[in-house]
Amino acid sequence: MTAVIHASDLTKIFGKSTAVDHISFDVREGEIFGFLGPNGAGKTTTTRMLTGVIPPDAGTAMILGYNIRSEPVLAKQEFGVVPETSNAYTDLTAWQNLMLMGELYGLPRARAERRSSDLLGMVGLLERKDQKVQAYSKGMKQRLILAMALIHEPGLLFLDEPTSGLDVQSTQMILSLLRDLNTQGTTIFLTTHNMEEANRLCHRVGIIRGGKMVAIDAPEKLKTAIDRVHKIEVSFDHEVSADALAGLDGVIDANRSGDKWQITAENRDAAIRSLVTFSRQNGASIVTLNTLAPSLDEAFLRLTQEVQS
């Protein structure tokens, strides 16, 4: 697979503080790449360097094969951007904003008009296309910005927290649009705080903390990587002894909490098999059995705290 975004040693220094500190990573063609990090970690700064809005102080970014510093126009022609702060022209209507974008991307008028109607229909703004953006709600503005970023059918899309502060409906609309775009082949670089969103949407995520990349992998792998041991929660309809449970194959430890047992297991699969055998042999049927997978939240907290200490 080819790298659509190739960042190497990207660095940005503001005064005395290093906002982004020698970051290197690749985003592959056709994937949704999640860029996660706490507030002030340097996500927006990185996105701005990648999209050619601000120059890096060191390092290079190759976007779709173009160096964003030496061939900015050719690179920008091929991608779309949904920036952190919504920035349509509020004195123009949605339609005028889209026409302006069409001109800035060099589209013939007819194609721009066709694309604009399609996109406005897709984001549910067609009836309000002749209203000034001033009068739009936050969610409407954000959907318009997404439409503006897609006017030239880019193969790569950058989004900086596209769903922050939006209601469930707008969020779902945007996320399902992103999923559809990705299915049609668009590569997506998505900055977000929302672990659930990243977990459901992204093929791979990169976690940034204090300007440094601390992990980069598939969400599932990140989750399992942080916990070498697994937790299983089980309850029986009879009393069983802690020692008997702890002695089972694959089980490290068993702790009682309420009417349930918290089992710490080295090998989740082996532990579950022995629990089932144990229940059959002792005539104690299993009432509940849950595997407690670490969430991406936990992985994120763990990874971002490690760097802090």
């Binding site: 900015p72 920008k76 022609q77 920035n87 800035l104």
Partner: peptide
């Protein structure tokens, strides 16, 4: 208004 950022990310 941050519209300048929009222009800066366009091929212009």
């Amino acid at each position: 208004a941050k519209t300048l950022e929009r222009l800066a990310s366009c091929p212009v």
